[in-house]
């Protein structure tokens, strides 16, 4: 990469305002707990400030943040703290104002399907981009999405919309 490439300069606060919800929602969809998502949100943005990375575009920043969120939640799952505690499942229900069968159905999926669904339907990344983010092949993304849809279909039986 040449040295003359243009890097964008965004204030840290601006970046936070723009992407805090993105990070938080992805973290929530992965850890399924408000308090853990809070921790991950702080951790991701502290890493962002400390890392002093250079970014080419806003999308580049978003990509980096998503990748870091996934890493942070991964290390959260392997932490000894996580292994020792019993999760409080009700946190999920209290955070949603409107009860929605769709969101709960997604939350009941295994984590790898959940993340793929979240990135595809909420963040609207293409299969190729998701493959880049998750560092898996495109066909793996496709099969994860297909299996997730299959499970969602059985869960959402009677609800009429195409998945």
């Amino acid at each position: 990469m040449g040295e003359d490439q243009k890097y964008i300069t965004l204030g840290d606060e601006e970046v936070f305002d723009k992407f805090a919800d993105t990070v938080y929602r992805l973290a929530f969809s992965r850890v399924k707990s408000k308090h853990d998502a809070d921790d991950i949100l702080g951790e991701v943005f502290l890493r962002y400030v400390k890392a002093e990375h250079k970014f080419l575009s806003e999308d580049h920043i978003k990509f980096w943040l998503i990748r870091t969120t996934i890493n942070c939640s991964k290390s959260f799952f392997t932490s000894s703290w996580f292994k020792k505690i019993v999760p409080l499942d009700d946190t999920l229900y209290t955070s949603l104002k409107e009860h929605s069968s769709v969101y709960y159905a997604v939350m009941e999926l295994p984590i790898k399907y959940r993340t793929a669904i979240h990135l595809y339907y909420y963040e609207e990344y293409s299969v190729k981009e998701i493959a880049d983010i998750l560092e898996i092949s495109q066909s793996a993304v496709k099969s994860r999405l297909a299996r997730a849809r299959e499970q969602l279909k059985t869960k959402l039986e009677g609800v009429t919309f195409d998945v």
Partner: peptide, 13 residues
């Protein structure tokens, strides 16, 4: 599904 999922997600902050 997509719209519904998005709408649900908006509530999470």
């Amino acid at each position: 599904f997509k719209d519904k999922y998005k709408k649900d997600n908006e509530q999470i902050s």
